[in-house]
Simulated assay, not measured.
Amino acid sequence: MNEISPETPSTASLEQLLLRDDMWMGHSQRFTTRAAVETGYEQLNASLLNRGWPLGSLVEVCQQGMQGEWQLFTPALLALPGLVVLVNPPAAPFSQAFIQAGIDLDRLIVVAAAGKKHFISCFIELCRASVGAVLAWQPQETMSYTELRKCQLAAAEGTGLSVVFRPVAMQQQSSPATLRLYARLASSGLEITVFKQKGHLQTQQAKPIVLPLPAQWKAATPHAALMQKSAGAKTDSKPQPLASIIPLRGKT
């Protein structure tokens, strides 16, 4: 029987472990392969682990005010099959803009959910139903980590694109979302900063990616400051239904 020094087994064991395919080492991007849909922007695709928006996951967008940042997802909406559901959009969708973008209005559903409780219920059920995409705007009440976790688990049960838009202040809050980014509409373009990706160890502060503004966005840029001021205005206190569906077909 050969004599083995005390250090040999532990050294060999460590080296063998590091060579295993199922050993994640922090900086490694193994085990991050998941279904994704291209963003439509090569520069943004290059910064995402699977070169696109992750499907069956919660994507969180923190934004200043309520601008047209959601249109960042237009190329993905065109590529995905199934329904596109908007939950609590900050303004009534303009049907002609969707038509010009190439989105069939028959695929589009708008859901108005009153209060955080009903917002979360709607979001969870829609994600589980595996519709093509759910784009939801967080209500005024702050969502807790536990509530966001429920949304993440529901998104994981589905196969579609699940996005929640939140105020920029929520960027400092811990979140279970698979992908988190900050979006800012500027005169130079749409600035996107990816500050969290599950499966990716970020070792330095992320630099913003500036995407060119599509022609239909440019008209909104001069009104950014006005929209931010009006965001804090008081809303109508009339009683609202718990949830309602708003048809877009026929609106101009």
Score class of each variant (00 low, 15 high):
Ser57Gln: 14
Ser121Ile: 04
Arg34Ser: 12
Ala129Gln: 10
Gly56Phe: 12
Gln63Ala: 15
Ser187Cys: 04
Cys122His: 01
Lys150Val: 05
Gly250Gln: 05
Phe73His: 07
Val194Asn: 03
Pro89Ile: 01
Met143Leu: 14
Thr8Asp: 08
Leu226Ile: 10
Ala136His: 09
Thr8Pro: 01
Leu201Trp: 15
Ser162Asp: 13
Leu181Trp: 05
Ala46Ser: 14
Ala133Asp: 07
Val131Cys: 03
Lys238Val: 13
Val194Met: 07
Glu38Gly: 14
Pro90Gly: 09
Glu42Gly: 00
Gln152Glu: 13
Ala92Pro: 01
Gln138Trp: 04
Met1Ser: 11
Gln152Pro: 02
Gly132Pro: 02
Tyr182Ile: 00
Gly132Val: 06
Thr178Tyr: 14
Glu42Ile: 06
Thr203Gly: 10
Gln67Tyr: 03
Cys122Thr: 00
Ser121Val: 06
Ala224His: 10
Tyr182Lys: 09
Thr235Gly: 14
Cys62Met: 08
Val164His: 02
Gln67Leu: 10
Asp106Gln: 07
Leu185Gly: 00
Asn2Pro: 10
Leu153Gly: 00
Pro247Trp: 04
Val131Asp: 02
Leu153Arg: 03
Pro139Trp: 05
Arg166Phe: 00
Thr32Tyr: 04
Leu201Lys: 15
Lys251Leu: 11
Ala224Arg: 10
Gly52His: 10
Glu15Arg: 15
Cys151Thr: 01
Ser237Phe: 11
Gln204Ser: 14
Ser5Glu: 09
Pro6Ser: 12
Arg249Gly: 04
Gln172Pro: 03
Gln172Lys: 10
Ser188Glu: 11
